[in-house]
């Protein structure tokens, strides 16, 4: 009403990321798994105050911001990305 905003704001890219994460957890090598690691690292940079939410690339905004906004406390303490990190991110996306 009074100039509708859009037809759909559901973040439909989540299934593709979930698929990559499930593959990594199963131990499969996926050419796209690097994008998950990069997103976790970028979210950590923002959580630590080295970058801001405004610096996230539009190409990965959904993934980085979702990790940042739902996993901030753990990101600050995160030293190494492990299988449990991927499991946590997968839970967030589910």
């Amino acid at each position: 009403m009074f100039l509708a905003q859009s037809s759909n704001t559901i973040e439909s890219q989540a299934p593709f990321y979930k698929n990559i994460l499930e593959g990594i957890i199963r131990g499969e090598k996926d050419v796209n798994s690097e994008s998950i690691d990069n997103a976790i690292k970028e979210a950590k940079e923002i959580a630590n105050g080295n970058k801001t939410i405004f610096s996230i690339d539009n190409d990965s905004y959904y993934l980085v911001s979702t990790i940042l906004l739902n996993y901030k406390a753990k990101l600050i303490e995160l030293n190494k990305i492990e299988i449990s990190t991927y499991q946590d991110v997968l839970k967030i996306l589910k």
Partner: peptide, 14 residues
């Protein structure tokens, strides 16, 4: 009147 925004650039890449 609307623009359908469900398929973002990020989605397109994925």
């Amino acid at each position: 009147f609307y623009f359908e925004v469900a398929f973002s650039e990020e989605y397109f890449i994925q």
